[in-house]
């Protein structure tokens, strides 16, 4: 799939943001006043900013409200609802924390649950696409959730939780890659099933148009094997390895910040791969798989 910067940014930041909000909802940390304000501001900025970023890739952002209508079937619509609900509930909860020094905990729990649900919905948008076998697995939500948890914990300054959570996320990440590499082959969708041609091995001869088109730009991205390996190592080190290492060192805010930054960089790389390596089966029709 085409690794669109707006989507990479949105999913990465909002995942982090909702992770942080979840921890805040659970009262970790239970800060109030200006400190709380700072935490919530970061959470809202990441989660909300991600949402805004996502509208950049819409053809008609002015109609974005229509996206709330189809929650019965569409994970994207559900994501719209859950994120709105999360932001509203957490907003109220934050008001309590920041202005009234109060912890309206049931609201916090609700907000945390909604944050998790939002991340889950985001993940399910990808998971539900059968045409991309690499995504079409239970590992995808697990991956998104563990990542949000690890990143959220890191942001929330829950050092003791962050390290094991990131380690878990890293393990899931590796699993995702391992199973992802064989996903298309296992899916049963092949040139033969795509074309129904069975009298011999089929090979794409001429494409329908000699130039490019929307489908090729959007759905048929090919990443070189070497490039992919390098990026994976980079993502593992920056996104998980280094932050964990930094967390194991005696905590300072600067180290925390550094851990945060490398984590984000690493996850951006991983997210780029998440899209760029995702083989859409339509590529079979173009002989690009």
């Amino acid at each position: 799939m085409h690794p669109a910067p707006s989507i990479i940014l949105f999913t990465t930041l909002s995942g982090l943001g909702f992770g942080l909000l979840a921890f805040l909802g659970l009262g970790m940390p239970g800060a109030t006043g200006w400190v709380a304000f700072a935490f919530f501001a970061i959470g809202f900025a990441l989660a909300g900013g991600g949402l805004v970023a996502s509208t950049f890739h819409l053809g008609h952002p002015e109609r974005a409200l229509k996206a709330f209508t189809q929650w019965r079937t569409s994970w994207l619509s559900r994501e719209a609802w859950t994120s709105l609900a999360t932001l509203s509930v957490m907003g109220l909860y934050a008001i309590g924390r920041v202005f009234f020094d109060a912890s309206w905990q049931p609201l916090g729990w609700l907000g945390a649950a909604l944050s998790v649900a939002t991340v889950y919905c985001t993940a399910m948008i990808y998971t539900s696409i059968k045409a991309v076998p690499r995504w079409n697995t239970g590992l995808t939500p697990l991956h998104f959730l563990t990542l949000s948890a690890g990143g959220g914990a890191l942001l929330a300054g829950e050092v003791s939780l962050a390290a094991p959570l990131l380690a878990l996320a890293a393990a899931v990440q590796v699993l995702v890659w391992m199973q992802g590499d064989g996903a298309l082959a296992r899916s049963g969708t092949t040139m033969a099933s795509a074309t129904g041609l069975s009298s011999g091995a089929a090979r794409a001869f001429e494409p329908p148009h000699t130039g490019t088109n929307y489908l090729l730009r959007e759905m048929v991205h090919v990443v070189g094997r070497k490039h992919s390996r390098r990026l994976r190592v980079l993502a593992l080190i920056l996104g998980y390895g280094l932050p964990i290492l930094l967390l194991l060192l005696p905590f300072t805010h600067w180290l925390g910040l550094l851990a945060m930054l490398t984590h984000i960089l690493g996850i951006l790389a991983a997210r780029w791969l998440f899209f760029a390596e995702a083989e859409h089966v339509v590529g079979l029709y173009y002989g690009k798989r």
């Binding site: 040139m191 091995a201 090979r203 794409a204 329908p208």
Partner: peptide, 8 residues
């Protein structure tokens, strides 16, 4: 769109 395939 019209694709074309070779079958061996």
């Amino acid at each position: 769109r019209v694709h074309s395939y070779e079958v061996q």
